[in-house]
């Protein structure tokens, strides 16, 4: 699958790059919300991993923007949430158009399972 990663953490991006590209997926990443929007507008991705806690333009802002622009359903957006987020918080975002969430710190096995289920 074509996967986009939007996360300000280089370590995470690198990790995902190795895992996903090494597991037969096509993965690229950007390190800001704005860059991520550009990418989404330009191409179609199957899955977008979206980190919520980013400075300046957060994951939530990205989701709001995508919703406004009507392109939120083009891809399955999987958000990385802090472990302290409540169900309510998550359902809010899912209502807006996110597909599901993975708790941080990201567990690679869980991530791969999720992808398999989507695929």
């Amino acid at each position: 699958m074509k996967i986009l990663g939007i996360d300000d953490s280089f370590a995470v991006n690198e990790l995902l790059d190795t895992v996903l590209n090494g597991s037969g997926h096509e993965f690229k990443y950007v390190d800001s919300g704005k860059a991520g929007l550009d990418q989404i507008r330009a191409q179609k991705f199957d899955v977008v991993f979206l980190d919520l806690a980013m400075p300046e333009f957060s994951g939530v802002d990205v989701i709001h923007t995508l919703k406004e622009e009507g392109i939120i359903d083009k891809q399955k957006i999987i958000i990385f949430t802090a472990s302290s987020a409540t169900q309510s918080d998550i359902s809010e975002l899912i209502k807006l158009g996110a597909h599901s969430c993975i708790r941080k710190p990201v567990d690679i096995d869980t991530l791969l399972e999720t992808l398999d289920k989507l695929g």
Binding site: S9, A11, V12, E14, L15, T18, V19, G22, S23, K104, P105, V106, D107, I108, D109
Partner: peptide
């Protein structure tokens, strides 16, 4: 995240 992540990747022979 990367520590745990890389540990997990390392255990994947495919990768």
């Amino acid at each position: 995240t990367p520590i745990i992540g890389w540990c997990q990747i390392l255990k994947k022979p495919k990768v």
